[in-house]
Write a protein that binds this DNA or RNA. Structure first.
Lengths: 184, 184
DNA sequence: AGCGACATGTAAGCGGTTACATGATTCT
DNA sequence: AGAATCATGTAACCGCTTACATGTCGCT
């Protein structure tokens, strides 16, 4: 399971609360592994039981108390083990391709719209990605973190952008072929 | 939901049983939308209640009885409606990128292995894809199906192959950069 | 007065996977 | 004799999403 291991990964940086972790997820791995708040809290409780992490209750006067978790030696072992485990390729679940597959139920115009609407979404996400994300990386790494870690982060960002660019280009190309769609 | 709409899509070809549908899924849309047998039977039962499909019990002497489902007019309306509904981009869940992100816990060699193992998996899947799939298309379309429908099928296959090719190339490229990974 | 940040969690439901269960026929 | 194909389904579980629930502090 990746959620647990992502949490272990973040806890190698420093001890963190559920609230902290949610922010880490949203700011860094979100575009390839998102996690909701409720999922994080539940998983932290489970991981405490297996002994991969330990909780420390920190009382605060001005703000709500925090439960800060730190990684144990077993946790570190588990993380290293998982990181060196080859994984199966993820199954693709792409609803849009289901629409394409059954688009013989649509007119030519509707089919073109199907492709163009998807292209437009890709363009929007790409714009978001290009603008928003790079700043976050800079901000985070002025306050610490190794160059190696930063370079690996950059890999995952490059992947995200290159992937969107590729898909967009593929669709723009497909749109050209769409003009010669057989009518029967 | 895509499973229901994929089923509706297949039922526009002809009335089918759960068993038939499982084969259709495995032979055509599997690489972007898979479905298990138990999922299909449960969903058919649910769809009968909503009125999108209707069941006909067909008794057979030599083999087990069949429950053959056909699409209703409401089903056709629902399918057309869904096909013209723009969908959000699917969230990517790519465990391998989680491994990359936290690979600062690994040595240089281990990191290179992480990339190379993934590339090898992509190569295997690509080989499978190129060999196995095209034949299925030919076979299926000698026994019927419109040219339009066939062309759309081809689109989804092309997408699958092009996607694997792109990812493989990206990783091979990343492997070159990996030589200059900062050590601190 | 209202909103956002801080901080914790529970509950219900949904889609999907894996395992279990049955039983006949046909091919090797 | 054993495997594959035909054909149906149930049950348990798992990961994830959405909604609900509570309460403080600081800023505008």
């Amino acid at each position: 399971m990746s959620l647990e291991h992502a949490i272990l990964g973040f806890l190698t940086y420093r001890p963190l609360s559920g609230y902290d972790l949610k922010k880490f997820f949203d700011e860094s791995v979100r575009h390839f592994w998102s996690a909701t708040q409720s999922q994080i809290y539940r998983t932290l409780a489970r991981m405490s039981e297996t002994g991969w992490i330990e909780m420390e209750h920190i009382e605060q006067e001005d703000r709500p108390d925090r439960k800060v978790y730190h990684i144990t030696n077993e946790g570190r072992d588990e993380l290293r083990h998982w990181l060196t485990t080859p994984l199966d390729l993820p199954a693709i679940r792409h609803k849009w391709l289901v629409q394409v597959f059954f688009a013989d139920q649509l007119s030519d115009e509707e089919t073109i719209t199907l492709f163009e609407a998807h292209a437009e979404r890709l363009r929007q996400k790409l714009a978001l990605f290009r603008n928003g994300v790079q700043e976050v990386v800079e901000r985070r790494f002025t306050e610490g973190g190794s160059k190696r870690s930063r370079r690996l982060w950059q890999f995952t960002l490059d992947y995200g952008i290159a992937h969107l660019e590729w898909e967009l280009q593929w669709i723009e190309n497909a749109l050209k072929d769409l003009r010669y769609l057989p009518s029967d």
